[in-house]
Computed example of a mutant assay.
Amino acid sequence: MHPTAHPTRYELHPQLADDTAPVIDLKLCEVRLMDDANHPWLVLVPKVPGATEIIDLGPEQRALLTQEIDAAARALKALFKPHKLNVAALGNLVPQLHVHVIARYTDDIAWPRPVWGAANARPYPPEDLVERVGALRAALG
């Protein structure tokens, strides 16, 4: 595909697929859990072909994205009681539009810095991943 061409159907970027586990599909976003046990960390990926920026979404889609970020943040807050919630849409390494919602603690491995590059990701043991995905799915469903 030409670098400036926009895809005609939604596909999850391979890096996001490698780094995350599926949690639930909401109306706009695919919600995924970052496979890093250092932080309770959700990634919301709008199922909009070619979207790389929030401004690529229409007004209704932007409103829905805000509602789904709110739901993700509330689920993390209810389940994990963080000191702070970080919400970010960077896309410097993965161009596909995605929003990080991260539960943070004043004693976490990266505090008070951003989580990126602070420590190596610590993959969940399989049974912990299944349990965490189940809890998040219930909280978001």
Score class of each variant (00 low, 15 high):
D108M: 06
R32G: 08
P14I: 04
T8S: 12
E68Y: 09
L97S: 06
L28D: 02
D36V: 12
T20Y: 10
L97N: 07
I102T: 15
A110L: 10
V31K: 08
L97D: 02
A121V: 03
A88H: 00
Y124V: 01
L65C: 01
L97I: 01
D108Q: 11
P125D: 15
V130H: 08
D19W: 13
R113G: 02
Q96L: 06
P125K: 15
A63V: 10
P40V: 11
P126H: 15
L136G: 10
P59L: 05
A73K: 14
A75Y: 07
I102F: 12
Q61C: 06
P59V: 01
A71E: 11
H2W: 04
K47R: 15
A37V: 05
L136V: 12
V94M: 12
I69V: 13
K84Y: 10
P125W: 09
K27M: 01
D70Q: 08
P7C: 03
L64C: 07
L33Y: 01
N86T: 09
A63M: 11
L140T: 03
W41N: 01
L136A: 13
Q96C: 04
T4G: 05
E53A: 14
L12P: 00
P82K: 07
G134D: 07
A75I: 06
P3C: 05
N38C: 08
P59M: 14
P49H: 08
D25G: 11
D128Y: 04
V87N: 04
T52N: 08
I109F: 09
T20R: 10
L44W: 06
N86A: 15
A135P: 00
L97T: 05
A21I: 11
E60F: 13
I69L: 11
P46L: 07
R62H: 10
L28E: 04
D18M: 15
L129D: 11
L85H: 09
H83W: 06
K81A: 14
N120K: 11
L16H: 02
E11C: 07
N92V: 03
W41A: 06
T8V: 05
I109W: 04
D35C: 08
L85N: 02
R113H: 05
T8P: 00
I69C: 15
C29L: 00
E53K: 14
H83S: 08
P112W: 08
E53L: 12
L65F: 12
G58P: 03
L65I: 02
L76A: 04
A110E: 08
G58L: 12
Y10V: 01
A71L: 12
A139M: 06
W111I: 02
E127V: 13
V23N: 05
D108V: 07
A118M: 10
H100S: 02
I102Y: 09
